[in-house]
Amino acid sequence: MLLEMANVMEQERAELTAAQATVKAQTLRIEKLEHRVARLLRVQFGRSSEKMDIAQLRLMFEEVEAPEPANDEVPAPPVAKSARKPGGRVPLPAHFPRQTIDHQPSPCSGGCNGPSVQIDEAVTEVLDYVPARFRVIRHVRPRLVCRSCEQIRQAPAVDLPLPKVMASSALLAHLIVNRFVDHQPWHRQSVIFRRVGLHIDRDVMSRWARKLAWLLAPLGERLFAYIREAAKIHGDDTPVTLLGNGDGSRTGHFWVYLRDDRSSGDMSPPAVVFRFSAGRGGAHPAEHLADYRGYLQADGFAGYNALYRDPRTKAPKDIVEVGCWSHARRKFTDILEKSPSPIAAEAVVRIAELFAARRLTGCERSDNQGVFRIFGAS
């Protein structure tokens, strides 16, 4: 009898332990999902800057002491404030050309015709706009014949940007900038041109753009090679809507790679390049950066992981990961929005102090080793 009771108790104890483990696992899963929902709600409806009230965090949790500057450090000069009052009128740019219109006053009243002397003047500047206009450039090549030797001479034909296309490089550049920088569709540009009596179909513009892309492809490859020569580059991707041929639309991605270390003292010219893909996967940055050796500063997208370590052996590769403190801060702000965590609050405060120190000193270098020392890590 006692043996049966012991077996029953042991079985109930095992069931209770299993139930407690299940409850714990479900609780962790619920908390994880709540964090995801809070993050998605903040992305959709929250503030884009993700600024936190640092003073409030200091009052809620233990005061975080900022690192004391060394004795030999020179305090940063105060940031000069703009002389213009908030909401005041912005002065007109000085490099704009000026056209002066002289307004003479009417003659004196009462029939006085005496001499006048200017004592002062009032100047009112008004910003004007001269609409863009088209023009036709006529390349005239006279054919000449010599009376003595009877040779016929003529200048060679003008080299056009696109063969057999009667468009100058300025017009083609205008179309491309409007389409891919100002995001003006071909149809909208065609409508704008028709208002001034010029008819260029959008299909024609699209064909010109494809020809220009083929001609400029070597320049783009050389630009990307210049970017990959840098010791550190920035990488990111942005989604774009990709229209299909009768099967709806889907999401494509532009992969952006930037070289710009002027804030670190490197005065090499900055450069940026875009690569397009119909999907988002780690195979695309792996292809783009196959021959790159250096530091890559990017977000926490899992597709970049194969660039840093071998997926099978986990051995480090020639590309070193450089994280972003803005993305790291989001994890702590997600925690703070759900529950008051002293550790998360301290992390947000220290990251804010780090950003403030960089703004005061004008230092924007990605010196992650020094940053990690602030947090006590190696």
Rank of each mutant, 00 (worst) to 15 (best):
I119R: 03
I119P: 02
D120N: 14
D120R: 08
E121F: 07
E121C: 06
E121G: 00
A122E: 14
T124R: 11
T124A: 08
T124S: 12
T124K: 14
T124L: 15
E125K: 15
E125H: 15
V126G: 02
V126P: 01
V126I: 13
V126N: 09
L127P: 05
L127Q: 13
L127F: 04
D128G: 04
D128W: 11
Y129F: 14
Y129V: 11
Y129W: 14
Y129I: 14
V130K: 13
V130H: 12
V130L: 15
P131M: 05
P131V: 10
A132S: 06
R133I: 09
R133Y: 03
R133P: 00
R133A: 05
R133K: 10
F134I: 14
F134Y: 08
R135N: 04
R135A: 11
V136N: 06
V136C: 10
V136A: 13
R138S: 06
R138K: 06
R138H: 04
H139Y: 12
H139D: 07
H139F: 15
H139M: 03
V140K: 12
V140N: 09
V140G: 02
R141L: 08
P142N: 05
P142E: 13
R143D: 00
R143C: 05
R143Q: 08
L144R: 11
L144P: 00
L144Q: 10
V145G: 03
V145L: 11
C146R: 03
C146G: 09
R147Q: 05
R147P: 11
R147D: 07
R147S: 07
S148H: 11
S148G: 05
